[in-house]
């Protein structure tokens, strides 16, 4: 059985006259890492919220269709079950801070406290998550005094510490330094290797290509396609949907360097390999750079 299924999902914000989500259906297996891309306003955050049950649980408005988590309908789950099952990292970390806690540590522990995890275990899990995100040394700091990147790290730590089966991340690294971005994506890959299902909305296509098994492309609330990064980024109609391929793919396209499957490379490693091969077979590409 698929781990997460969306069936004819529809949603309209109160007072809005257009659908933010328009008849979206897909299914995802346990442990898959799914990228969500699309131009501003295409519905990425709305989809993230629907997957985490905040739509229709928290945000009102017109809702149709359903989200199934392990075959159970998200909209019918009680809050406690839902938040053990799925965790959401908000697009703006500021919105994730409860405002009720005086230290970063308590903030990260908040979810665990709510579901009544025993003290010892809670401490171990909070510490582990905070260390992974390099913010354990700021544990005594007031949450709103953290730098932007530190606050975003705290938001991610809070969700990781809950150890949900499904993790939805809405542009989780937008304020992280390059090293921090890499570390978070590597952590995500490890989690998905352990059977955690990941959804990741992101504008950085190089990272989407390097870390996701499949990518969902949204446009005006509709799901245009859900495919492997190589197939999706080799499409030649991406511009219609307001997205760009990774810079490596754009370069390979100009130089018409393709892999054996006829698709363009999407990651640095693959691009390097193909360029090196071309060079060896004397195909004449990029020799000028020697």
């Amino acid at each position: 059985m698929a781990h997460v299924t969306a069936l004819h999902l529809k949603y309209k914000y109160p007072g809005s006259d257009t659908l933010a989500l328009h008849d979206i259906s897909f299914s995802v297996e346990r442990g898959e890492c799914i990228g969500i891309i699309g131009e501003n306003g295409s519905g990425k955050s709305s989809l993230c919220q629907a997957l985490a049950g905040l739509i229709p649980g928290f945000y009102k408005g017109a809702y149709g269709g359903k989200v199934l988590l392990d075959g159970q309908e998200a909209a019918h789950m009680d809050a406690d079950t839902l938040c053990r099952k799925v965790g959401l990292v908000f697009q703006n970390p500021f919105n994730q801070v409860t405002g009720a806690k005086l230290t970063a540590y308590e903030e990260v522990a908040f979810g665990l406290e709510n579901i009544g995890v025993p003290r010892e275990e809670m401490h171990a899990r909070v510490r582990e998550a905070m260390e992974l995100l390099h913010i354990y040394e700021y544990r005594e700091h007031y949450p709103f005094d953290l730098s932007g990147g530190q606050m975003q790290r705290m938001a991610i730590a809070g969700v990781f510490a809950m150890r949900p089966e499904i993790i939805v991340l809405d542009e989780p690294v937008s304020q992280l330094d390059p090293q921090g971005r890499k570390e978070v994506f590597e952590a995500i890959r490890t989690l998905s290797g352990h059977g955690i299902t990941i959804f990741l909305a992101e504008h950085n296509m190089e990272q989407i290509a390097a870390f996701c098994d499949r990518v969902a492309l949204l446009h005006e609330g509709r799901l245009i396609c859900m495919d492997t990064p190589a197939r999706l980024f080799s499409r030649d109609d991406l511009e219609t949907y307001g997205v760009e391929a990774p810079v490596f793919t754009k370069l390979a396209r100009v130089l018409q360097v393709r892999g054996q499957d006829g698709l363009f490379p999407v990651t640095l490693e693959e691009t390097k390999r193909l360029f090196m091969e071309k060079r060896q077979t004397g195909a004449g590409v990029l020799e000028w750079l020697e």
Partner: peptide, 18 residues
């Protein structure tokens, strides 16, 4: 804790001097 831009990294990996 920083990184080169993507194209710069690729060119470095390919062994280009510039």
């Amino acid at each position: 804790y920083l990184e080169q831009p993507n194209v710069t990294r690729l060119c470095h990996e390919l062994g280009y001097r510039g």
